[in-house]
């Protein structure tokens, strides 16, 4: 190996090593009893049949976060669990048996991951869901 290129390989190797410990985050609602649709199709069956009528209850903006930092300041944030995310969502749905009439229609799931280096290192992975909470009429 050329001695002049050695630092480059060392730095690249360090970068690869950092990557093995990268933070990740997952957006999902595994415990939600109501559907959370990313598609425009909102029911199983003949795709030619008309969509069911729904009434909009409100907008949904929720955020899931996974972050870590070795910098000793306020940037260390708490990881959001799928259970917490679902609990946040359930507060916006009809209660009791009517929860099955509720559904969420997402326009998109925004995923973002970043890392930074200052005096220490930090990484952050976030996900946002944007959509509307609706109820089947």
């Amino acid at each position: 190996m050329n001695t002049q290129s050695t630092p480059v390989f060392l730095l690249a190797g360090l970068g690869a090593l950092c990557a093995t410990g990268c933070r990740s985050t997952t957006v999902s609602y595994p415990f939600c009893p109501a559907p959370v649709y990313l598609s425009k199709v909102d029911h199983v069956g003949d795709p030619g049949s008309p969509s069911r009528e729904t009434e909009r209850l409100g907008a949904l903006e929720s955020r899931i976060l996974s972050s870590t930092s070795t910098v000793d300041d306020d940037t260390v944030e708490v990881e959001t669990t799928p259970g917490e995310l679902t609990a946040d969502l359930l507060r916006r749905l009809p209660v009791g048996d009517d929860v099955h009439r509720g559904e969420l229609k997402l326009q998109s799931v925004h995923m973002s991951a970043s890392a930074w280096l200052h005096v220490g290192t930090g990484q952050r992975a976030t996900g946002w869901t944007h959509g509307t909470v609706e109820v089947v009429k």
Binding site: V27, S28, Y29, P30, F31, C32, P33, A34, P35, V36, Y37, L38, S39, K40, V41, D42, H43, V44, G45, D46, P47, S49, R52, T86, H100, E103, L106, Q107, S108, V109, H110, M111, S112, A113, S114, A115, W116, L117, H118, R124, T129, V136
Partner: peptide, 28 residues
């Protein structure tokens, strides 16, 4: 050195079947 990374919006506007982030899905 500062922040670096990337982001994207995941969408499924022309999926022909329902796609749910939960276990639930409706029938007709």
């Amino acid at each position: 050195s500062g922040c670096y990374g990337a982001s994207t919006d995941v969408v499924a506007p022309t999926a022909k079947v329902p796609v749910s982030l939960s276990r639930a899905v409706h029938d007709a």
